[in-house]
């Protein structure tokens, strides 16, 4: 999940104030996940990631980290890391 140096893809999100983008290495696939498989962040996760992740979905054989667009909003991020 390290930000890539030469991003190839940008995911674009829309929030109340406008648009923001998230650089990613690549886009894998589109999955349908169910709320019943979702769990919040484990407390043992280190603090910085606590702020970024919104829990994980338990797929059959692996865990899928949840990135909640709201939490990635640059304005919110700034305040989250200040706190």
């Amino acid at each position: 999940m390290e930000p890539a140096k030469a991003p190839e893809d940008v995911l674009v999100f829309e929030n109340g104030d406008g648009l923001f983008g998230l650089f990613v290495d690549s886009v894998g696939e589109v999955l349908h996940v169910s709320d019943t498989d979702h769990e919040p962040n484990p407390a043992t996760l280190e603090a910085r990631r606590q702020a970024l992740f919104n829990g994980a979905w338990k797929l059959k054989d692996r865990l899928l980290v949840g990135l909640e667009p709201d939490r990635l909003d640059p304005m919110r991020l700034a305040s989250a890391f200040r706190a």
């Binding site: 484990p42 996760l45 980290v65």
Partner: peptide, 9 residues
């Protein structure tokens, strides 16, 4: 033993 980044679960 699964991992969420550095957290083992």
């Amino acid at each position: 033993i699964e991992r969420l980044e550095n957290a083992a679960l």
